[in-house]
Design a protein around this nucleic acid. Structure first.
Ligand SMILES: [Mn+2]
Ligand SMILES: [Mn+2]
Ligand SMILES: [Zn+2]
Ligand SMILES: [Zn+2]
Lengths: 140, 140
DNA sequence: GACAAAATGAGAGCCGTTCTCATTAAGAGC
DNA sequence: GCTCTTAATGAGAACGGCTCTCATTTTGTC
């Protein structure tokens, strides 16, 4: 028989390094295709499927976090200490907010429910999308 | 020339009634396909595209609200006053919380960003899933 | 009832994501 | 360094939720 499983299989490929570097370099969460495009531009041509697989791996590891904004794209970013997010309804930008805005809810409200965490997205419009005089079409 | 536009065009079809009745009858938010299935089972065969179009119309009207849970499906439910949600990491239950827990964020934190709304999910475990001794697998 | 156009049905098309499988190459062991 | 096992990759097909197209039906108005 062959060798028994020892540790979680994980190989250090340049593709994984490229994906991680791309995510680190970005100031906000990126879609898979955007990560693909940037990683590709910054180095060797990597396959889109590899990007997806790598992101999946990083999610399992806890290295990155993912989020659905509502436009059909999943965004990926470095997982760090807890923080809430600002989401621009104009351009879809997904950016971290400094710290946490949510107070511990009074247990009277959560009857029987033990709260272990939360996820908050603040919706609105960034400076560019609000524009000079403040245009901004609402997206429900 | 023809008559000028007077009011927002909206016709009262049995399909729209069926979709609304289905959503009202459900105690929770449903996916478009689930609404399609139920409406269909409860009456005449309605087209999936019609369900989507009707939901879009209801969203514009403000009759229904939509939400992404994170599994790639959009869920639709009756729009009511704003409320946050409790999500059980054990059973996936998604239930409304009385009122809103989120304070207006200090503008110092949101530099240049105009906040128009938010979405908050409190994660944790419901009474059943906490159980007698408190089992409960985490969902990232 | 006649009419204009909103709304529908059926299915093709779109697009982000996942899967398949032949090929490559990372890491363990020598 | 070389060999070997198999994790990982690349290329493209497949998948699935959603949207679009267009001929046809139906609504609301006159
Ligand atoms: Mn984040
Ligand atoms: Mn709700
Ligand atoms: Zn913006
Ligand atoms: Zn539960």
């Amino acid at each position: 028989m062959t060798r028994a499983a020892t540790r979680p299989p994980s190989r250090n490929t340049w593709q994984r390094q490229a994906v991680l570097r791309t995510i680190e370099a970005a100031g906000c969460h990126l879609s898979a295709e955007e990560i693909h495009r940037r990683a590709r531009r910054a180095g060797r041509p990597i396959a889109l499927a590899t990007v997806y697989r790598t992101l999946e791996t990083f999610l399992r590891t806890g290295l990155v976090e993912s989020a659905h904004i509502g436009d059909g794209l999943v965004r990926y970013g470095l997982a760090s200490d807890h923080h809430d997010h600002l989401v621009c309804l104009g351009c879809g930008q997904w950016r971290p907010l400094e710290g946490c805005v949510v107070p511990r809810p009074r247990s009277a409200l959560t009857r029987g429910f033990v709260v272990t965490g939360h996820r908050l997205e603040l919706y609105g419009y960034c400076a560019q999308c609000r524009g000079p005089q403040g245009r901004g079409e609402a997206r429900p």
